[in-house]
Amino acid sequence: MDIQIWSDVACPWCFIGKRRFEKALAQFPERDQVNVTWRSFQLDPTLPEHSDRDEIDYLVETKGMPRAAVEQMIGQVKVQAAGEGLDYDFDSLIVANSRRAHRVLQAAKKADAVDGGDRADALKEALLSAHFEKGGDIGDADQLVALGIAAGLDEQTARAALDSTELDEAIEADIREAAAIGVRGVPFFVIDNKYGVSGAQPPELFLQALNTALAEQKPSLITLDGAGEACGPDGC
């Protein structure tokens, strides 16, 4: 079963959605047959590589929301994250453009395609945790290379990915495909190219979608009863 997930490293709901999807997948009987592909999406491609603003100032300025409303919103997100075992630290969060992080993720995907590895998933987890829990800078070259190496990339590949125009093309292809299928926000999950699940839904909804897709892969037999004779265990 094929699962495509559009997501941004700078999206708090994407980390929560990842956890909830993983909970559903753990309950799915065919989980060993599921192939997950992370796809790129940028909520704010106009951000500089680094910003001096904190998260609240950034959201107040870009969303035009009152500071009190932003603080309340962040508090609610933090509670939802805690419910999934995530310890969001918005006070330490560094506002940065996620483009370089996506390039390294694309490099991890390319490496996985060669040997069937799981570098992309490991790197996605590490990037989200660094950004939302550990005060990491997802625009910093050295930090990105270190995370890439920890996820299984060699240093040369990780460093070459940072400013790769070839990987930029892969990012843009993901973004164009998202637009073509109507994705307007992330996370967005596409199951077997048929079912779209928008947002960090409860695990139960993800599991329902997975089971529905599985049932359609293995349709039940329709028996047409007629007057034909047959033999059974009790005779003919």
Rank of each mutant, 00 (worst) to 15 (best):
Q4K: 11
Q4M: 01
I5D: 00
W6Q: 02
W13N: 04
G17R: 00
R20G: 06
E22P: 07
F28S: 08
N35S: 11
T37P: 01
T37H: 02
W38Q: 03
W38P: 00
F41I: 03
L47I: 03
R53H: 15
D54K: 09
E55K: 15
Y58I: 06
V60E: 12
E61T: 15
E61A: 15
E61R: 14
M65A: 15
M73W: 10
I74L: 12
G75N: 13
V77G: 13
A81F: 09
A81S: 12
A82K: 15
A82D: 12
G83E: 13
G85M: 10
G85T: 11
L86T: 08
D87G: 08
Y88E: 14
Y88H: 12
F90G: 06
D91F: 06
I94G: 06
I94N: 11
I94Q: 14
V95Y: 05
V95R: 03
V95E: 03
A96S: 13
S98G: 08
R100Y: 04
R103P: 02
A107K: 04
V114Q: 11
G117Q: 13
R119D: 08
K124M: 12
K124T: 11
E125V: 06
L127T: 08
A130W: 05
H131W: 07
E133G: 05
G135S: 07
G135M: 03
A141D: 12
A141F: 03
D142C: 07
Q143E: 14
A146V: 08
A151S: 04
L153Y: 09
D154E: 10
E155N: 08
Q156V: 12
A158C: 11
R159S: 14
A160G: 10
A161M: 05
D163Q: 07
T165R: 07
E166N: 05
E166Y: 02
E166T: 01
I171K: 01
I171Y: 02
A173W: 01
R176Y: 00
A178H: 00
A179S: 09
A179M: 01
A180Y: 00
I181E: 05
G182A: 02
V183N: 02
V183I: 08
V186H: 01
V190T: 09
V190K: 07
Y195C: 01
G196F: 05
G196E: 01
G196W: 01
P203G: 02
L205H: 09
F206G: 08
F206L: 06
L207K: 09
A209T: 08
A213R: 11
A215D: 15
E216R: 13
S220M: 10
L221A: 10
G226D: 15
A227K: 13
G228D: 14
C231T: 12
P233G: 06
D234S: 06
C236Q: 13
C236H: 07
